[in-house]
Structures are given as C-alpha cells and as structure tokens.
Computed example of a mutant assay.
Amino acid sequence: FASLDGLAVGELLTPRLNPRPAGLRFLNDASAFALGARHTVHTGSGRLVAITLGTGIGSAFLDRGRIVEDDPRVPPEGRVDLLTVDGRPLEDTVSPRAMTARYTDRTGRPVDGLRELTALAVADTTARDIITSALRTLGDTLAPWLTAFEADTVVFGGSITAAWPLIGPPLHAGLTHHDPRLARLTLSVRDDGEDQALLGAAVFAARRA
C-alpha cells in the first residue's frame, strides 16, 4: 500500500475497467462490513459498532446506518486502531502480530499466526493467558467508547472470530468491568465478513446511484 501513496487510484483504475464505470467510490473495509452486517441481520439497530480482528483492528460506528467518523462520541476518524494502551498503539497489544510475538518472547518458540496460537491455547496456558489478556484489554479499551456512543449492537468479524469461544469471554469481561450496563449489549459474530463487506459496499454505492 505504501507504493500507492499520493496516487489518484480512482483516476488510474477507471480507464482500465471494461465496461468503463461512470465513477468509482471508495469505502473503508470495516465500514463496508458494518453496513453489510446491519443490512443483513441488524436492520433495527440504532447504533451499531463493527470491529474486525484480522491482521490488525478495524472499526466502524453506525448511527441509524450512517457512518460516524467526526464526532466526540467516537475515536478519531472512528478508528479504534488509533487508540493507545499505556502510551502505545492498541495494535501493539491486541493484534495477532503482537500476540504471536509475545508468545515467542515468553517461550522462545515461534508460532505461525493466530490460528496456531489459538490451537495451542487448548492445552498451553501461556498461549491462553496471552490471548485472554489481550482480548480483555480490547474490551477495556472499547468500553468507554461504546458507552459514549450508546451502542446497542457490536458485530465482530475477521479471521480471529473463528476462535470466538476462546476470545469472547475475556472480551465480554473487559467490557462489563468498565461498565456493567454493557452487559445488555448485543454481541454478534459474523464468519462471512468478506461477503458482508461486499454487500455493504453495494449498499454504500446504491445510496449515491
């Protein structure tokens, strides 16, 4: 992506498409996921927050289907990856990269991604403790923003959701430790995140069609 910095991607891409579109619109993938998830199963949600956990952390805040990015109720640009924990970026604690690196630091054993780490966590207390601590931290970090936004639904997507039975409880504990009222939140997991993002992109495009 660094090689695209400063390039007018839309202008360069349009003449290469056949048939040539009248125009292109771009949307953050987490926002597309949020719009798709709301359209699919959460049409009644007033304020929905989407969190994607994959290579990094993505987020989107929807107020009655409108993407909210510039509002004191949400993090800067609506991006939780810009939040910090103990003065360091949140992704230095919660991302798969951070968790696998922490496991290697503590055990001396390399681990190939989060899938392997979660598999190890079934019997390996170190792996389980690292995941539990990271996801509880995520809950603690998200909680004040979910409270401020008065969210009623939080939808999780991304590769990490395959391990939801492992990550869900510490995440929920972090949320409710900050504010017991968050126990009333509807927490939803979507394992078809790419499909939801495509649907959300279509919803977004249709609004300006």
Rank of each mutant, 00 (worst) to 15 (best):
A123P: 04
G10T: 03
L24M: 14
R136P: 02
A50T: 14
A163H: 03
I131D: 07
P96M: 03
G78E: 01
A37P: 12
R207A: 15
D140K: 11
S3W: 13
S3Q: 15
L62R: 03
A183V: 08
R102S: 05
R106T: 13
A134L: 07
M99D: 00
P76K: 14
T176V: 15
A32L: 09
I131P: 06
L17W: 07
P144H: 04
T147S: 11
P89R: 07
T107L: 08
V49P: 12
R47V: 06
L12M: 01
G174C: 05
T161N: 02
F61G: 01
P19L: 14
L27T: 05
G46T: 15
D152G: 11
R128F: 00
R16M: 06
I67A: 01
D124A: 05
I130R: 00
W164I: 00
R38M: 08
R136D: 04
G58L: 11
G23A: 15
S95T: 09
A30D: 09
I51L: 12
H42V: 13
L120C: 07
A201R: 02
L53C: 12
F149Y: 03
D92Q: 07
R115K: 15
V155R: 00
A148K: 08
L114E: 12
G193R: 05
F33K: 11
E11P: 09
